[in-house]
Amino acid sequence: MLLRVKNLSVSIGTLTLLEGVSFDLAKGEIMGLVGESGSGKSLTALALTGLLPLIGGRVTAGSLEFDGTDMVTQPKRKLRALRGRRIAFITQNPMTALDPVQRIGPQVDFVSRTHLGLDRKAARARTIALLTQLRIPQADAICSSYPHQLSGGMKQRIVIAMALAGDPDLIVADEPTTALDVTVQAQIIHLLTRLVRERGLSLVLITHDMGVVAQACDKVAVLYAGRLAEQKPVHALFASPQHPYSAALIDCIPREGMAPGSLTGIPGNVASATAYPSGCRFHPRCPRAGAGCDTKVPVQRGLSDAGTVACHYPLNGAPDV
């Protein structure tokens, strides 16, 4: 296993925002991390890259093992050497992810110069090769332009190129397409997953778009209010979701031939971190909530289909209350 997250809890101040999250990721696997805003997706991404201190967060329990090394106890210097070289991060908004006063070329060159020890010329050659692979026309001209001269889709490709430049083993992409036009979103996701597959890299793809998950991922972890609701191979999740929340998310995908007005949402809002409901945090919004849901915290348990679910009344399984 390349990445082994066990029982991870993350706090900011006194608020515990991520609690007992566990998942594994093998080399070459693409995992989707889904959930509504505020479910802890981005926090998980920051934890994976060791950047929690940026927002004042810290790991309070559990472990985060990357290729055998524990990321939680690593000294800052080691983490920095790892970032960009073995774990790369793609931020949410490509519009602001590039330095506005630096030309594109040097910004991308920096990664391979820092991590692969390339000289100026070799780094630029690598940058141009990467940009070309990302289907950026006239890569050498793009290198000497400033970010404000490029479109959003183009900028996101540059950001992806920066992530790939250090030849990492794992890429964490935090909603890489949310800030883009829908027409480019599919292109970017396709390009990213293709490059990841070609190179045999692992990818944690954070998204709230179940369509993207279905299209791109091998497995998926569903987060709700800072806890893991369900995780399993992607086909199994779409074929038979066990957690009512996963089922509800899948029901939110528009389908061909749907009667107008029949698209459903999930009633209510994501629970606020300052006032999480007792028991299962989803129970106030859950159509299947029954006795015990408001008092007992559900634990992850294995069901027949190679995944785990944290629910007292799963859709296709015995209740555990």
């Binding site: 950047l51 970032r83 960009g84 908004n93 330095d99 630096q102 920096f110």
Partner: peptide
């Protein structure tokens, strides 16, 4: 606190690099 600083940090930039290459030129 701009995203590009976070992005640069997440790709392994040192404090010196962030200061000299990103922050000072932007503040100039």
């Amino acid at each position: 606190s701009e995203t590009f600083v976070e992005a640069s940090l997440s790709l392994g930039a040192s404090h010196g690099h962030i200061l000299m290459r990103h922050l000072l030129p932007n503040a100039l």
